[in-house]
């Protein structure tokens, strides 16, 4: 499976599809940190929210890099389960690179203060990353079959993740806990709320990935 992950990452980079996500990340980082020095925990909380659509878009781009017939060739080589897992792992690897880039860059320019915020910031980005990979997978061509539907899923999912996560939302559990995590990080969270939000993020992602796997069974 690692060989298939490597093959997909190679195609993603060589095909120039890594560039849009990189530029999107630069824009997000510029907007978030352009106003001056910020507390790390608070800034990273909002960074995790802002990166959610970027990482989801990157995941879609990566999963769509391969022509449909090549994806089917991969299925014959490694089987449907490992083919699916390799795609998600490759998307997560690209997302992890984006998160590292977005977290390290502000330090290099002195835009962040308070090293104590690094660990909770890393947690918020990890929660955002797994949920974004799930959304990107749902928006991929293997599921949506068309660019238009893919973009619709990506944009709708990203908007709902923010709107449904607003303070006072009646159905916050329908969205990944990005906004809740950003609010907690600004208020210096306790460990109990971190565990609850982690469980929420993992459960949300598990449901989305299960939906992705189910749809892939019938849409090869």
């Amino acid at each position: 499976m690692s060989a298939l992950v490597r093959m997909r990452l190679t195609a993603f980079v060589r095909g120039g599809r890594a560039l849009p996500g990189l530029l999107g990340t630069l824009v997000m980082v510029g907007i978030i940190y352009g106003g001056g020095r910020s507390d790390a925990a608070e800034a990273y909380g909002f960074s995790a929210v802002a990166l959610f659509p970027v990482v989801a878009w990157q995941a879609k781009l990566l999963l769509d890099t391969e022509p449909d017939v090549q994806r089917r060739l991969a299925v014959t080589a490694v089987g449907p389960h490992r083919e699916l897992a390799a795609g998600l792992l490759a998307a997560a690897a690209v997302g992890a690179g984006t998160v590292a880039f977005a977290m390290i860059l502000p330090w290099l320019f002195g835009a962040i203060t308070g090293p104590a915020g690094i660990a909770p910031g890393l947690w918020a980005h990890a929660a955002s990353l797994v949920a974004a990979v799930g959304l990107g997978a749902l928006a991929s061509r293997a599921v949506t079959r068309s660019t238009l539907y893919g973009i619709a899923v990506l944009v709708t999912g990203s908007v709902l993740a923010i709107v449904l996560g607003l303070d006072g939302s009646v159905v916050p559990w329908l969205a990944p806990p990005l906004m809740a995590a950003a609010r907690r990080l600004a208020d210096h969270p306790d460990s109990a709320s971190l565990v609850t939000l982690s469980a929420h993020a993992l459960l949300w992602t598990a449901v989305v990935i299960a939906g992705y796997a189910r749809m892939r069974r019938t849409r090869s």
């Binding site: 490597r6 060739l73 991969a74």
Partner: peptide
Amino acid sequence: VGWVPERFPADQPFTVHGYLTAMARL
């Protein structure tokens, strides 16, 4: 299983040797 599709997906950023090596590693 070896499957030869009706149309080979040539729209990929690999050389012939690079592609076949990557496929062999699977």
